[in-house]
């Protein structure tokens, strides 16, 4: 069990706010941490790692990491941290990066096997691709057999097909070691595939917390599907109005009445949903 109860005033791009998190996480859980940028996700991760100060308490199993009088140094917390930019040591080969943490050769070999990196063990990080680097970073984080694995948007710098592949590897590692994991992510499919719990932060506080399916599903009532998008424009064509909405990477046109057109503002975030018919799914 991990008990988190921390407070920290933050001064970000959006002005001042109080990061105020009260949370319990079960041993072996895979938690996805989501929320708009500036909501305090990375700061929470850094506080857990001991890289940033905060007031409150942190308790991991029976060990106190933080209370009023005491803060355990990052060196002693036994955590794994995966940075968005990998942060590998360029002067060491892949294998040396892992063995730098602990001289546990069998573990290093096992990790490299799981992530298909055995062939690259002697290579220097700068000769690797982004996906390979992030795998090395993941293996390195697992080397001290962490009590808590923290992933700060580990896959956001990679292209989508690579992402899916690496998600599989993160999952494989989680199954193998059953490490309690907290991952910052913006990608719903990633959160759905990997996590058993999704926590959404907004303005420094938890605004949603539950199973991935419940938190991520946007439909209400009898809606078949519902997408969030940005209203780009409303164009008048003859007697009707057409709203142009950007959903993900695509543009969608929806017919709206005059009354609706008046109540909508360009630039607003809107929900597009339908009911009363069954959507067709065809392979694209």
């Amino acid at each position: 069990m991990i008990k988190i109860d921390i407070k920290k005033p933050l001064h970000g791009a959006l002005g001042s706010m109080l990061l105020n998190i009260d949370l319990e996480i079960k041993q072996g859980d895979f938690v996805a941490l989501s929320g708009v940028s500036g909501s305090g996700k990375t700061t929470l991760l850094r506080i857990l790692a001991g890289l940033e100060e905060a007031t409150g308490t942190l308790q991991i199993q029976n060990e106190i990491w933080l209370n009023e009088k005491f803060s355990l140094s990052p060196q002693k917390r036994k955590i794994g941290f995966v940075f968005q930019d990998y942060a590998l040591f360029p002067n060491m080969s892949v294998e040396e990066n892992l063995l730098y943490v602990t001289k546990n050769k069998p573990l290093a070999k096992k990790l490299l096997d799981i992530t298909n990196l055995t062939q690259l063990a002697k290579r220097l990080p700068n000769s690797l691709s982004g996906g390979q680097k992030q795998r090395v970073s993941l293996c390195r984080a697992m080397m001290n057999q962490p009590k808590l694995l923290l992933l700060d948007e580990p896959l956001s710098a990679l292209d989508p097909s690579l992402r899916t592949k690496l998600q599989g590897e993160i999952l494989a590692l989680h199954k193998e070691f059953n490490t309690t994991t907290i991952m910052v992510s913006h990608d719903p499919s990633e959160m759905y595939r990997l996590s058993n719990r999704v926590i959404v932060l907004g303005n420094g506080e938890i605004i949603d917390d539950g199973e991935a399916k419940d938190v991520l599903l946007k439909t209400k009532g009898s809606q078949k599907f519902s997408f969030e998008g940005e209203l780009l424009d409303i164009v008048k064509v003859d007697v009707i109005n057409i709203a142009i909405i950007s959903i993900g990477q695509q543009l969608v046109e929806v017919v709206v009445s005059n009354l609706e057109a008046k109540s909508l503002k360009i630039g607003e975030v809107v929900n597009v949903s339908t009911k009363a018919f069954t959507p067709n799914i065809v392979q694209s």
Partner: peptide, 21 residues
Amino acid sequence: NKNMLEASYVAGKSKYVTMLR
């Protein structure tokens, strides 16, 4: 890269070892 130094701290290495290695 600051993250590189922090990665070393998190791996349990002191500031001295981090500087040297």
